[in-house]
Simulated assay, not measured.
Amino acid sequence: MRRTFADILNGAGVDVFAEYHSLHMLVFQRYGFYSDMEECFEWMPFSGTAYNLRDFNERNQFDFEHAEYTEDLDDLLLFCEYVYNFAVRLNVLEDCGTRKASGIVRHINALADKIGYRFVHDGELWILVPRNDKIEAAAEVAPEGVGNDLFRYDYRGYKGDLDGKRKILASLASALEPPRAELSKAAKALTSDYFYLVNNLNIRHNNIDPADSGKYNDWVAQMPPGELEGWYDTVRDMSAAAFLLLEYLDKKDGIDETKQR
């Protein structure tokens, strides 16, 4: 059967090799976006002490210009983040803004959506995290700033980084402490389990130092890092569930009134 244009596009899937090559052409072709990155490098807040873009690339081992082809998804994600952070800033700079910057932003956003990722803030930088419907729903109803922490937790750079994940989880726990009593009334077991874990898995307290007899937990201190990270992932998911529960509780009076009617 002859396929239509729509059949071909909808069934194409994601070709990392092709996507990397297309972005590479947009950036490094003659008079491409890279020339704008070089010209306006001094305006980048993440430039550090590098004196130009070539110096910046050498210091950070960014050799995208000579790596035109790859089938590695992590390489594509890093390349997207590299270009995107330049593009979003050039897109709003009056002295350096270009039409190419806005086109690059649109292209990379479309690519991120295609491969199932989204951009979120990590400090002053934009990073790519995998889309997660449950986390997105929780982030929409979480307090301002907290939703971004829910997203950041899934950043590939945090995999194996227990300290980084611990800080995010501690921030989430702090946001859930004020409505703790309200949560407990609606879901006592969830609330009790959640705060037990954040207080005993070396998240909010130092549970691995024998000198702190009041907080020390021998089981946690001897736990393999991979196992502890698995528990941390569970705590993040429980945090998301708690924020969704709080949203339900905000609507509870309206639901009860509707039931009475």
Results as ranks from 00 to 15, higher is better:
residue 138 A to I: 11
residue 124 E to K: 15
residue 76 L to P: 05
residue 169 L to E: 01
residue 144 E to Y: 05
residue 142 A to C: 13
residue 76 L to S: 08
residue 137 A to M: 15
residue 83 V to M: 08
residue 140 E to Y: 10
residue 89 R to H: 13
residue 154 D to T: 04
residue 104 I to D: 01
residue 91 N to S: 15
residue 170 A to L: 14
residue 127 I to W: 00
residue 165 K to S: 09
residue 140 E to H: 10
residue 123 G to V: 13
residue 106 R to L: 09
residue 110 A to R: 10
residue 85 N to M: 04
residue 133 D to E: 10
residue 144 E to K: 06
residue 121 H to G: 11
residue 141 V to S: 11
residue 153 Y to I: 04
residue 137 A to E: 09
residue 117 Y to K: 04
residue 159 K to G: 08
residue 126 W to P: 00
residue 100 K to Y: 09
residue 84 Y to D: 10
residue 150 L to S: 07
residue 137 A to W: 10
residue 153 Y to K: 06
residue 85 N to A: 01
residue 95 D to G: 01
residue 170 A to T: 12
residue 160 G to Y: 14
residue 135 I to N: 02
residue 102 S to T: 12
residue 95 D to M: 12
residue 83 V to Q: 04
residue 92 V to K: 11
residue 131 R to I: 13
residue 114 K to H: 15
residue 138 A to D: 12
residue 148 N to Y: 15
residue 170 A to R: 14
residue 114 K to S: 04
residue 85 N to E: 08
residue 76 L to F: 15
residue 97 G to S: 07
residue 71 E to P: 08
residue 96 C to P: 03
residue 84 Y to Q: 05
residue 126 W to G: 01
residue 128 L to G: 01
residue 147 G to K: 08
residue 125 L to R: 08
residue 88 V to Y: 00
residue 171 S to Q: 14
residue 127 I to T: 03
residue 74 D to F: 08
residue 137 A to T: 13
residue 81 E to I: 01
residue 128 L to P: 01
residue 91 N to H: 10
residue 105 V to E: 12
residue 90 L to P: 00
residue 127 I to A: 00
residue 150 L to M: 05
residue 147 G to D: 06
residue 118 R to H: 15
residue 149 D to E: 14
residue 155 Y to N: 09
residue 141 V to A: 12
residue 82 Y to E: 08
residue 153 Y to G: 07
residue 93 L to V: 10
residue 102 S to I: 15
residue 149 D to G: 11
residue 154 D to I: 04
residue 154 D to N: 04
residue 158 Y to V: 02
residue 85 N to L: 02
residue 105 V to T: 13
residue 122 D to F: 11
residue 168 I to E: 03
residue 113 D to V: 10
residue 133 D to W: 05
residue 112 A to Y: 07
residue 108 I to L: 09
residue 154 D to H: 04
residue 83 V to F: 02
residue 135 I to S: 00
residue 96 C to R: 11
residue 123 G to N: 07
residue 158 Y to H: 10
residue 93 L to I: 04
residue 78 L to W: 01
residue 89 R to T: 14
residue 142 A to W: 01
residue 97 G to M: 06
residue 86 F to P: 06
residue 118 R to S: 13
residue 72 D to F: 13
residue 155 Y to I: 15
residue 172 L to K: 02
residue 129 V to W: 00
residue 133 D to M: 13
residue 78 L to S: 06
residue 117 Y to V: 05
residue 75 D to G: 09
residue 75 D to C: 08
residue 88 V to R: 02
residue 133 D to L: 08
residue 161 D to G: 08
residue 136 E to C: 11
residue 159 K to S: 05
residue 132 N to S: 03
residue 89 R to Y: 14
residue 84 Y to L: 11
residue 154 D to G: 01
residue 90 L to W: 00
residue 129 V to S: 01
residue 84 Y to S: 11
residue 86 F to K: 03
residue 133 D to A: 10
residue 168 I to M: 13
residue 140 E to D: 09
residue 72 D to A: 14
residue 74 D to S: 09
residue 150 L to G: 12
residue 153 Y to R: 03
residue 83 V to L: 04
residue 164 G to K: 06
residue 84 Y to H: 10
residue 105 V to G: 15
residue 109 N to Y: 08
residue 166 R to F: 15
residue 123 G to L: 07
residue 88 V to G: 06
residue 93 L to A: 14
residue 108 I to N: 02
residue 135 I to P: 00
residue 119 F to H: 03
residue 84 Y to W: 06
residue 140 E to A: 07
residue 159 K to Y: 03
residue 80 C to A: 13
residue 84 Y to N: 08
residue 74 D to N: 10
residue 146 V to C: 07
residue 152 R to G: 00
residue 168 I to R: 05
residue 117 Y to S: 02
